[in-house]
Design a protein around this nucleic acid. Structure first.
Lengths: 248, 248
DNA sequence: GAATTACTATACGTTTGCGTCTAACATATG
DNA sequence: CATATGTTAGACGCAAACGTATAGTAATTC
């Protein structure tokens, strides 16, 4: 599929991000206990094959993303993961548990990506454009769009999932961006009274109508050029509003 | 339920908006023929009871909004509409046709609401705040949020629905807002080079993070005060960026 | 090797929901 | 009145999906 190189599917595992950050993200809405279950501490008997667990999650992820939770059966997940149906139930209590694990993994990935946003380039405008471009590239990727759609349709039934994702994604991103904006303000490059508000505004400008169109699937994901142009427009507008001369 | 006063449910009918506007909205994505079907031109025999048709649509709307299309059975719709299941199938070919009719009605309602946005108040800032407040009040109403959620989850399967809604809602609104912004520019109150872009930016600022939280259901719909404060912030930021002195 | 646990394949019982059909009654045209 | 269509209530066939059960094989500990 598009978003996973065959055989190399990593979901929630301590090797992709520091355990404490992962935990912090997932504990926001007691999602963790459902995701890292009792590991039976290596008694006698054949151990569980974690590769199969990952294969199940990868298969479910791809299927859920493209056809929604209700549109996919357990048997189909098992078939795609090259696994027996019973094995699926051996690893997960039910369908909802699979979804929880996927959302937790996605939340972790989101935080991880946001945590590595570019921070160094030369002047402020270039830095903001770089961050915005990276963010929009991430957000408009087919897999992220599919994930948001999925989350939206499950939001009513499973508010915990939406909560976890909001915390790991937007809120986390806003805090990080707000820090940068505050720093720029103390440096004298910007005049911002409420950095968090400004960060939310900037993010909204970055997303704009473009993101909505992508989310509803009425247009393909934007090219790098389109994203760059769109983000640059937003940054310019933002900087005009918050340039130091604007506030006494 | 929350969003309809019992018995007074009006969906797609020529009495709520001019026929040509309605048609223009719905024809954007050949939704119309599926919604206003062949009326059999009053031959012999008992005529169809349009009140029942409306009751079916109202029931389906409420149920779809709260539990999604897949989560609701035809029998349940019929029961809630005080109608036999066969009557449902007498008016609509299948579930998808019911959904089409609902979306068409909602699109029409959306255009109608956007078309009546406040236009008169005194100065520019007050006018923009008034429009933004009205828009956000509309968008964050439980019914509209539920509708967007519904649409999002069906977007993959039914791109025509998303298209119709985008055209009737955001795109229509952006055009109207862009006209006002362009007028303000010629009046000298603003300095805007690309009114449509600016309209999209302003709308994004109005929505902001607040709307996302509502959409995901992690917070209740904002109060009038909250909306007013949020919109005012956005307008202030917008005006700082596009005030005439900002551009030579 | 014995015990224990995991995985496979398959079958099963149950539920759910869709869409159709029928027989009776209701309401319109002419 | 005859005719034609709409509405109801119930039953029906069918397919899909969930989650469980069983029996045999595979992997691991002691």
């Amino acid at each position: 599929m598009l978003f996973m190189q065959k055989g190399k599917v990593q979901l929630v595992r301590e090797d992709i991000m520091p355990r404490d950050l992962l935990t912090r993200v997932l504990l926001t809405r007691d999602l963790l206990p459902r995701v890292l279950p009792q590991d039976r501490a290596a008694g006698p008997g054949r151990p569980k094959d974690l590769a199969k667990r990952d294969a199940i999650l990868a298969a479910a992820r791809a299927l859920f993303f493209s056809r929604g939770v209700e549109g996919v059966g357990i048997e189909e997940i098992a078939r795609r993961a090259n696994v027996s149906k019973m094995t699926v139930y051996g690893h997960f209590r039910d369908k909802a548990a699979i979804l929880s694990a996927i959302v937790a993994a996605e939340a972790a990935r989101m935080t991880s990506v946001l945590d590595e946003m570019p921070g160094e380039p030369r002047n402020l405008e270039q830095r903001l454009v770089a961050v915005g471009t990276a963010l929009m590239t991430f957000l408009t990727s087919p897999e992220l769009l599919a994930f948001e759609r999925l989350l939206m349709s499950e939001a009513a039934r499973r508010p915990d999932l939406a909560s976890a994702m909001l915390e790991a994604g937007p809120r986390f991103g806003h805090r990080k961006l707000a820090e940068q904006l505050a720093a720029a303000t103390t440096r004298g490059d910007l005049a911002i009274r409420h950095p968090v508000v400004a960060a939310e505004q900037l993010t909204s400008l970055w997303k704009g109508f473009l993101y909505l169109e992508c989310q509803l699937g009425v247009r393909p994901s934007p090219t790098a050029e389109e994203i760059h142009r769109h983000v640059t427009e937003g940054v310019a507008m933002f900087l005009r509003s918050y340039r130091p001369s604007a506030l006494p």
